[in-house]
């Protein structure tokens, strides 16, 4: 693929990536939203975080299959407890990485 054709492809990819990120901000940020919508949107972050995280802990492969007891899950348990107790983001990331590193060395 020539650089011109590649750039054109990237611009199209960039556009379809950018629009879904931009349109809601432009349409919703400076508008009074109905109370029910704001209430619903208020629950979206916690739901999204959980939906992003859970399959990474309990599934693997493409297509995905259920894999209970992966190191990702076992490490998540003490990492979660650490986060609950300390409420420290940096500490949790470090503890999670350290435990995962250990798990990879001990369980393989």
């Amino acid at each position: 693929m020539s650089l011109e054709a590649y750039l054109l492809l990237l611009l199209a990819m960039g556009l379809v990536t950018y629009l879904p990120r931009w349109l809601p901000l432009q349409l919703l940020a400076n508008r009074r939203l109905p109370a029910w919508l704001e209430e619903w949107l208020g629950l979206i972050p916690v739901a999204l975080l959980s939906a992003l995280l859970a399959p990474a802990l309990f599934t693997a492969g493409r297509p995905r299959s259920l894999e209970l007891g992966r190191p990702e899950f076992w490490v998540a348990v003490p990492t979660l407890l650490f986060a609950v107790r300390t409420r420290s983001l940096g500490g949790t990331v470090m503890v999670g990485m350290g435990l995962f590193w250990l798990a990879q060395h001990l369980l393989v």
Binding site: L43, P45, V46, L49, S50, L52, L53, A56, L57, E72, V75, A76, T79, L80, A83, V84, R87, S88, L89, T92, V93, V95, G96, M97, G98, L99, F100, W101, L102, Q104
Partner: peptide
């Protein structure tokens, strides 16, 4: 896979999820 760095984002999501659990509803 050095230093468990592959787990950084998962650990981050775990902690941010914990921060979001502010009521039984959440």
């Amino acid at each position: 896979g050095a230093f468990g760095i592959d787990y950084a984002l998962i650990a981050m999501f775990i902690c941010l999820l914990v921060f979001q659990l502010r009521s039984r509803l959440h």
